[in-house]
């Protein structure tokens, strides 16, 4: 249902855009297509990895590592994974969904998503070049701590 709404909205906007400016609409299509083909290699790789790994990862194992009952320890595991890995959300969400389906806890997954997006361990040198050490350190540390708060709240609301 959600997907269908998305299709309807985007196609409606596409038609409106086309009516207003054909050249711009063409540019938008090219940009969208290029963004897609840029992400597709990473996307395909992770989907393939997920397909492979999940075949061997039984629900019992997932639940044991990062299930609801693992509490803060499980969240520590997923937060570190989220902070150091650099995978785009497009790719992370299917992975997160598969883990949830296999018994991972909501708070554990939430902290993974949150740290993944807000904390960039790998890109710290790049960030320092733009914002200096102190701002970079502050932003990443605060975002890391905040991810736990967010996860606790999400864990309470979802379920």
């Amino acid at each position: 249902m959600f997907t269908r709404a998305l299709y309807i909205i985007s196609i409606g906007l596409l038609i409106a855009s086309f009516g207003k400016d054909r050249a711009k609409t063409r540019a938008a299509l090219v940009k969208g297509l290029r963004a897609f083909s840029n992400i597709l290699p990473d996307f395909a790789t992770v989907l393939a990895i997920v397909g492979l790994v999940l075949t061997f990862l039984s629900p019992d194992i997932v639940a044991g590592l990062i299930g609801q009952k693992t509490g803060i320890l499980g969240m520590l595991v997923t937060s570190i994974a989220g902070a150091i890995t650099l995978i785009p959300g497009f790719v992370a969400f299917p992975l997160a969904k598969s883990l949830l389906d296999r018994g991972a806890g909501v708070a554990q997954i939430a902290v993974f998503i949150s740290t993944l997006m807000m904390v960039g361990f790998v890109t710290v040198p790049l960030e320092i070049r733009y914002f200096g050490r102190r701002v970079t350190f502050l932003r990443n540390t605060l975002a890391y701590l905040f991810s736990f708060i967010a996860a606790f709240i999400i864990g309470m609301v979802v379920l």
């Binding site: 596409l14 540019a27 938008a28 969208g32 297509l33 989907l47 999940l54 497009f90 299917p94």
Partner: peptide, 28 residues
């Protein structure tokens, strides 16, 4: 393994067209 991989692809690729369409329109 192939069954899992295939269903992963179908599920996620079906949502891609409208999102990237929106993304392009926003950008322009």
């Amino acid at each position: 393994v192939f069954r899992h991989t295939y269903s992963n692809f179908i599920e996620m690729l079906s949502i891609c067209p409208p999102i990237f369409l929106l993304l392009g329109l926003l950008d322009v």
